[in-house]
Design a binder for these strands. Structure first.
Lengths: 337, 337
DNA sequence: TTTATCTACTAAACCCGTTTAGCATTGATA
DNA sequence: TATCAATGCTAAACGGGTTTAGTAGATAAA
């Protein structure tokens, strides 16, 4: 292994001080009145020998790592994978690398991950926060780290976030089902105090209330296995034969719902109409194709990075936090016609 | 922001030298004959004030970053997302963090990413290598970095890798179709010189040859869009009405194949049987459910991490590279009955 | 002629750990 | 009583950059 060159090697080879080399490489030559001739000589030599500054040493001194910590709920969920993918691309374009991890919605794990990220001196944080993490995130903010939340937010945490209009999305989807003549519309969701889930519930309830229909809400434990969710839904069908449409709180629940309707021998949409929150490749290909509330993945990623970059460049007002709410799209397919 | 404590602060508070603190915190107290009483005092104080060593400074001095660079083809592909997820978990359990990125099978991008990882001083690399990256990876190996490849390998690169038995997998799947009485079995794959794709082709050809059946192979450009692949397949159906079964080279091609059969009005499996390489949630839920060659995701991740950890701990024979080949499972579903 | 200012650089401190080399002190051995 | 080893700890160097404070020499202003 050929030994890596250091800035001292460069300085010695050119018989100048390493300070000068550092200034030149950091574009501070003019400011520091280094002659153009020397600047040229140094840059040429550096290029010739392929010298690259040690980024650890740089980080140690400057306190900046050019790394962004990304905490998503679950990288193997296609929705989060797609967003992570976009965020990654955009971050690289802005000269930042990503360290990522999945929280599993596990508060303790998330606490440890945040501690690990701090330890690694990441410059900024992008997080889909689980419950109970308010304090840790407030600590980050208090200590001056840029934090952008997405998918959901924390009411008591003053920071930037990017979410979608969950309330209107489910309101609109429910209203669509009502307009189609459905009367017994159920909402199956996770039992969760996270903002996005609460708003989805509220949107559904609002539409039902406005049409004087009786709401029918089932809340499922977040940590329930897919199999047990299917069982639960089969029981639901038995108990509620009158239900003629279901709105699901997220894509995973809808997937379980598809298995359950199939097992129960229910015809979709003749016996029961279905709508999912979050679109998914599966929903497009499934027979019948499943109507879904589609979130604008690219826009979410764009806005997350934009907000974070503004903070990192200090171009955003320190006090004023930005809250971006994006629209979703109801993609109507066969499961609700 | 409360100032972060440094090792000097700890040493001063306890009126001892920072060397002693360092030895104690790194578990070298016995070796360095630090008295048990002092060890206890230091550990208690450190815990009390919550001191955490600056990992950058540590990395700078020791040359170890405790970061693993993970390069997958595409993190938004469920197969890679699932493996990345497992690798991440296992890496954390071993005290390592992951920096990841998607290569898009793009050689230039991958070169840049490897350079970036080197710059970040990652301790080891896990890579699904694209074509043309042999030299860069050989450089890594020459310079002493542990590198583990997976999903495919590079014949001219002497390093550890974890793959599945691609040849047997497609041989077996093809044989299964032959046993079912199919005579005109097509193989639709990507045009690729990557080992996994070549072996999948060979397995198919071997089975066809053994049964004296005529092979029918279509190679599709890797960068073709989903829509154009569907178009291409529709053309294929027109040109080859005799084909009564298709084996797909990967999950994405099969997804396109499902769209195409549907558009062409072909009944599955009556008109045409289908088998995918890589299982996928969709294949289980699709009507009819799709037969798939399932890769052992957990085992792949386990083995990748195991090999890498052996290298990182120097417990592996420097010269002898390990090649792990895992079995797949043919999950028979309705699409091929 | 003296003082001030500018130009073109540089020495040394600093970031925060780890590691090397070594120094008192005590007890044991010759 | 001199020599040696073990004990318990530490000063200083090091890793590789950035930043602060400053210097020597040339020119301009008073």
């Amino acid at each position: 292994m050929k030994k890596k060159l250091s800035i001292v090697d460069i300085a010695n080879s050119l018989n100048i001080s390493k300070t000068t080399v550092s200034f030149i490489l950091n574009g501070r030559a003019q400011e520091k009145r280094i002659s153009e001739e020397l600047v040229k000589r140094v840059l040429e030599y550096v290029k010739e020998v392929g010298y690259k500054p040690n980024s650890l040493a740089k980080s140690l001194r400057t306190g900046k790592s050019n790394i962004i910590g990304l905490l998503v709920q679950d990288i193997s969920n296609p929705f989060f994978a797609a967003i992570a993918r976009q965020i990654e691309d955009l971050a690289y374009k802005n000269g930042y690398k990503i360290i990522y991890s999945s929280t599993d919605n596990d508060t303790q794990k998330t606490k440890e991950l945040i501690a690990m990220f701090r330890d690694r001196h990441v410059d900024g944080y992008i997080i889909t926060p689980p419950d109970g993490i308010e304090e840790d995130i407030n600590d980050l903010i208090r200590d001056g780290f840029p934090v952008v939340l997405f998918d959901r937010y924390l009411p008591n945490v003053p920071t930037d976030y990017v979410v979608v209009d969950n309330l209107f999305s489910t309101y609109n989807a429910t209203q669509y089902l009502i307009d189609k003549g459905h009367k017994n519309i159920a909402f199956i969701t996770y039992s969760s105090i996270q903002t996005q889930m609460i708003e989805r519930l509220e949107g559904y309830e609002k539409a039902m209330r406005q049409s004087k229909l009786k709401a029918n809400v089932t809340e499922i434990d977040f940590y329930a296995s897919a199999d047990s969710i299917v069982e639960l839904m089969l029981g639901f069908f038995q108990k509620h034969p009158e239900v003629d449409a279901i709105l699901f709180g997220n894509n995973h629940l809808c997937k379980c719902g598809l298995k359950a309707t199939r097992k129960a021998g229910k015809r979709v949409p003749e016996d029961i109409a279905l709508i999912a929150f979050d679109d998914h490749e599966l929903f497009e290909l499934y027979t019948p194709a499943v109507t879904a509330i589609s979130q604008p993945i690219s826009e979410i990623a764009d806005n997350v990075i934009k907000l974070l970059m503004e903070r990192l460049n200090n171009s955003a007002d320190e006090q004023k936090k930005q809250h971006v709410t994006l629209a979703t799209e109801l993609i109507v397919r066969d499961s609700s016609r």
